[in-house]
Design a protein around this nucleic acid. Structure first.
Length: 426
RNA sequence: GCGAUCGUAGCUCAGCUGGUUAGAGCAUCGGUUUGUGGUACCGAGGGUCGCGGGUUCAAGUCCCGUCGAUCGCCCCA
């Protein structure tokens, strides 16, 4: 073990292929959000603690234990963003974005949560985020879900990922359902786990998605929200599902899918996989009509989702590493400047080319093979051998079909032949 | 906050029931050999066996603590 500074718990140094996958996720997201007309926004990494505390609820464990909060030199209480939504709502209010409603925005970047790391869960991780603020229409929910589905499709990971959908109803629905759940679980007190007894007092809906097998009978027999839905809430959910069907997005009703916080209304959804250990959700979101109000703004309907970039990246196939097409090797040390010149010309011509910083020709060829290059371009002095005189370039192909080799030779020769003459390869 | 498992060279790991100077592969560096050339050969550097106690004639190996990692629980914005 080397001493010296170590990586902070829950942070990651993303490198090489994993970094390529990460970037592929971001690139796909940027492409798709443009297709759907979501404006790009860049948000601060920290906000006044109040922004998150008020939106999430002052008393919850989240605020008291799971945020990176600190006091700056001026004595202000600040918090590293644990999500994008609250900050976006703050900007919606403080920057006059209300005039832009309905506002479709997308962003991505690091977020911070002070939690125990486990598979697919870090203290600094990265999210994609898409929100529609200021629309109460179910079509807004549909648009976000279709966007999410197209993103997964473009990443090639719709296989094994299912959209689970539920409704939490409007305020009246939610109230009635919650009361019915409390009554139900009170009647099954002695079957519940200790943890669920705590949930019963603090957050009874959470018993529904408990993983503890002891809770399942009571949770599975609990009343569904459906019989409590007001006509409006029912109509809203029907429009969402009809919109998904029309767009060809497959979904599954999960009547046990709930949200921890009170500001959620109507639509709740998660795109879920079983390939990421205990952390199954890759995209999660819903309608949060109560949030802007909690921040002190006017009642404002809004819906959105966030996705973990690392988790999505873990599901994608390895991207082909961009191995160099050409590795340039000077045959003799005095040819180094010529090799540098050729290298630069190849790169300007758009060819992925590389060259070792040092080493003899043999060593460099070994490195070229390890780098999985398509071909090695030797730079040498003019000379003559048993086959006759030869020029300054020699291209040695390491892979590829005859056609591919020929095509590469042509592309390499084009930018070089004026200065270096022709290629004689074998 | 809780639990399980793990912690030996830069990386991946061997080290049997505790027994002499702690090993391999890869990587790094040096050299040999070879026809413009792949995986060949020789050699070198690099480890207070996470850290701290304890048991023992003797601990990488057993016990306790501590720190860290992984996975899970809680929580999940």
């Amino acid at each position: 073990m080397s001493k010296g500074p170590q990586r902070i718990r829950g942070t990651q140094d993303i490198w090489g292929e994993a970094a390529d996958r990460f970037q592929a996720v971001v690139t796909a997201f940027e492409r798709v959000r443009r297709l759907y007309g979501f404006r790009r926004v860049e948000m601060p990494v920290f906000e006044a603690t109040e922004v998150f505390a008020r939106s999430i609820g002052e008393t919850t464990d989240i605020v008291s234990k799971e945020m990176y909060s600190f006091e700056d030199r001026g004595g202000d209480r600040l918090t590293l963003r644990p999500e994008f939504t609250a900050g976006l709502c703050r900007a919606y209010l403080s920057e006059g974005w209300q005039q832009l409603a309905p506002l479709k925005v997308a962003t991505h970047g690091p977020v911070f949560r002070y939690e125990r790391p486990q598979k697919g869960r870090y203290r600094q991780f990265h999210q994609l985020d898409a929100e529609i603020i200021g629309s109460e229409e179910p079509m807004a929910d549909v648009e976000l879900l279709v966007l999410a589905h197209q993103l997964l499709d473009e990443l090639g990971i719709t296989e094994g990922v299912t959209l689970q959908l539920n409704t939490l109803g409007d305020a009246a629905t939610r109230e009635a359902w919650r009361a019915a759940l409390v009554t139900h679980f009170e009647g099954h007190r002695r079957e519940l786990s200790d943890e669920s007894l705590v949930r019963l007092a603090k957050n009874p809906m959470r018993i529904l998605d408990s993983k503890d097998p002891r809770d399942r009978p009571a949770a599975d027999s609990a009343p569904d929200i459906d019989s409590f839905l007001t006509p409006d809430a029912r109509a809203f959910f029907d429009k969402v599902t009809a919109g998904l069907d029309a767009a060809g997005v497959p979904w599954q009703r999960n009547s046990r899918l709930v949200r921890g916080l009170d500001y959620y209304r109507h639509t709740a959804f998660e795109f879920v996989t079983d390939r990421l250990g205990a952390q199954g959700a890759v995209i999660a979101g819903g309608r949060y009509d109560g949030l802007v109000e909690a921040l002190g703004g006017p009642p404002t309907p809004a819906v959105g989702w966030a996705a973990g970039i690392e988790r999505l990246a873990m599901l994608t196939d390895p991207t082909n590493a961009q191995a160099p097409e050409i590795v340039v090797v000077p045959d003799q040390p005095d040819l180094e400047p010529d090799a540098s010149r050729a290298l630069s010309m190849l790169r300007k011509a758009g060819i992925r080319a590389d060259m070792a910083f040092k080493g003899n020709a043999k060593r460099r060829v070994e490195l070229a093979r390890k780098a999985d290059a398509d071909a090695v371009l030797f730079i040498r002095h003019e000379g003559e051998d048993a086959y006759g005189p030869y020029g300054r370039l020699h291209l040695m192909h390491l892979r590829g079909s005859d056609e591919a080799r020929h095509e590469l030779s042509t592309r390499v020769l084009l930018p070089l032949h004026r200065e270096f003459g022709g290629i004689r390869g074998r």
